[in-house]
Design a protein around this nucleic acid. Structure first.
Lengths: 154, 154
DNA sequence: GCTTGACTCCGTAGTCGGTACAGACGGTAG
DNA sequence: CTACCGTCTGTACCGACTACGGAGTCAAGC
């Protein structure tokens, strides 16, 4: 499969770092268009590579597939769409910051638990039976900010 | 259902902040033991409340259910188990830190994208068609640290 | 021409950590 | 008696993939 006829799904996968199975999945859910075919085999061009690369970058930034779909949809009509994209990105950014705050609280609590464990404050560390377990105590400290779920990011 | 006979699942839910459905789910996957019953109704005691509270705290810290199971399993035999728990927590802490690093990179990239959008560097912001889209460019910057998936945390 | 091995096809089921719903039953207050 | 809440079991669904089975296809080497 050469330059003129396009590339196969494996090559697309290699170029974008996106799993073959995932490419087919994206196609199935309509995130990627139905590609050309040679026989039963999918054939991709440079535009497909660009589109998929964009999807991957957006996913890396933590956008949900539906948001990626929206971003892709905006690609058609200039100026106004850019404002929409900006808005979406801004909302998303707020989410990312909330998530970081959550994780920092978790980090502090975990670090404290480990440190207390090292100090050997509670011999026996029964974790549940007694409330003297440093681990349990440190674990009690986290309070999450209100920020809804994130899909699994590889 | 009073103090002597134990509390119902709804009350347990209220006390631990854990959804009723989730309690039953935890029971189904063996994370919580089969509770006593009065008729068909589940009855819980203070020990159940403590155990579930522990599970919730561990989940808030981002431990996977399997890890929580392990932590609970360690609750039986003192000193050595504490060391194991510490190790698990430490590994987990490293993961949390990697995740924070990932998110900070994402944060920077997103903030930059939004800012560039404001500056109006690329009129029309076609997102995909041209590589001049500030959004696309900013999106190209993220490189994730190697840290595997996180379950959805409410 | 034939074999080998890599690649691709499609469809289905599993993952994780729950959530949501349907339809039945139990307990109590008015 | 009726209304209404809580609880019961079982199943299906979510997002974002991943894994697998069993077949077909392609190019290269012998």
């Amino acid at each position: 499969m050469d330059r003129k006829t396009g590339i196969a799904i494996g090559e697309l996968s290699r170029r974008t770092g996106c799993n073959v199975e995932t490419v087919r999945y994206y196609e199935r859910i309509g995130l990627l268009p139905q590609p050309a075919r040679r026989g039963r085999y999918r054939l991709y061009g440079t535009e497909d590579v660009a589109r998929l690369a964009f999807v991957r970058r957006a996913r890396e930034l933590g956008f949900a597939l539906d948001e990626v779909r929206t971003l892709l949809g905006m690609a058609t009509d200039g100026q106004a769409a850019c404002a929409d994209a900006r808005r979406l990105a801004e909302t998303h950014l707020a989410g990312v910051r909330a998530k970081i705050a959550d994780l920092r609280a978790i980090e502090v609590a975990l670090a404290e638990a480990v440190q207390r464990c090292d100090a050997g404050e509670a011999p026996g560390c029964p974790l549940i039976e007694t409330p003297s377990c440093p681990f349990c105590q440190a674990m009690g400290k986290v309070r999450r900010a209100a920020f809804g779920g994130w899909g699994r990011r590889r």
